[in-house]
């Protein structure tokens, strides 16, 4: 039973890891905490749902279209709302992202209604047997593989391509990046598009794990403690943070009174920060201006 909770916790946790990475990518480059990240995920889940229900596109195209919609959403938010805030106090920008999140929730509620909806299943949930009598559904397994796969891909992208290196350079020293002739605003835009893609993928994966509602974004917010536990900055940190949260939340849900499950991520966050304030992978790094 315990191990079973762990296995399904890993699925939830890898979605957290994914969304946490979305937070981190924007934060590292632009210093903006994007509180709309969870709602971007929610929006992706709805787009995915709508396309599946309408049945006009075959499933692979639905997946592709959802991902593209995420990229476009990220692009639009950056271009229309965040970019004009450049040079304004950071605090204001962060509040604006909160506003964006609320708007997305309202838009989703207007289009798709506020009642819970179940996402059609693409993948079978018939469990397959793992070793030691553990079972996992292909669906959970896919979530784990796809999220961690994307995390690995992004990590390769950041470390081994020129554009990825430039994005790290922008995150490290923005003004110096300007002096390299790097078009920093364009990099910001790419950061938001990647986060949008991550949001849409997270939405697609998490949708079937729970029911759809405009409040799904709050689950995405659980990725926030995941990012902090991981040290808010590193890719492996996000993965470890996400998995710890997903597993511990699931175990709490299984063994502790009802209601504890929802606050558990934040409880874990407080405990971890009391023991290790910089997070698991965090370095006390000075961010030079």
């Amino acid at each position: 039973m315990l191990m079973q909770q762990v296995v399904s916790g890993l699925a939830l946790g890898s979605v957290y890891a994914l969304v946490a990475l979305g937070f981190i990518i924007i934060y590292k480059a632009t210093d903006v905490l994007n509180f709309a990240q969870g709602d971007m995920m929610m929006f992706g889940a709805y787009v995915n749902y709508a396309l599946l229900v309408s049945g006009v596109l075959p499933v692979p195209l639905v997946i592709l279209a959802t991902l593209v919609s995420g990229v476009i959403l990220g692009f639009l938010i950056e271009r229309a709302i965040v970019r004009p805030m450049l040079g304004k106090p950071l605090f204001a920008t962060v509040l604006v992202t909160m506003g964006v999140g609320i708007c997305l929730r309202a838009v989703a509620g207007t289009i798709w209604g506020h009642q819970y909806k179940a996402v059609p299943e693409i993948l079978s949930i018939t469990p397959i047997n793992l070793a030691f009598g553990l079972v996992i559904s292909p669906f959970h397994l896919t979530i784990i593989i796809v999220s961690l796969g994307l995390v690995a891909l992004l990590s390769l992208f950041f470390n081994f391509t020129r554009l990825g290196t430039a994005m790290r350079a922008v995150a490290r020293h923005q003004l110096a990046a300007f002096l390299m002739g790097i078009r920093v605003r364009r990099i910001f835009s790419i950061n938001w598009m990647i986060s949008g893609l991550i949001g849409a993928l997270g939405g697609m994966l998490i949708g079937p794990l729970t029911f759809l509602s405009p409040d799904l974004g709050f689950i995405g917010l659980n990725a926030f403690p995941a990012a902090i536990i991981g040290g808010f900055g590193s890719v492996p940190g996000a993965v470890v943070g996400g998995l710890i949260l997903g597993v511990s939340e699931n175990i709490a849900g299984g063994y502790l009174p009802e209601g504890v499950k929802n606050v558990f991520p934040w409880t874990v966050l407080i405990v971890v920060l009391m023991i290790r304030p910089e997070g698991f992978f965090g370095l006390y790094e000075e961010k030079k201006v």
Partner: peptide, 13 residues
Amino acid sequence: SMVPEGRWIFTDL
């Protein structure tokens, strides 16, 4: 090309 005072190198690259 400007080499700034304080170098501004990308320390984690």
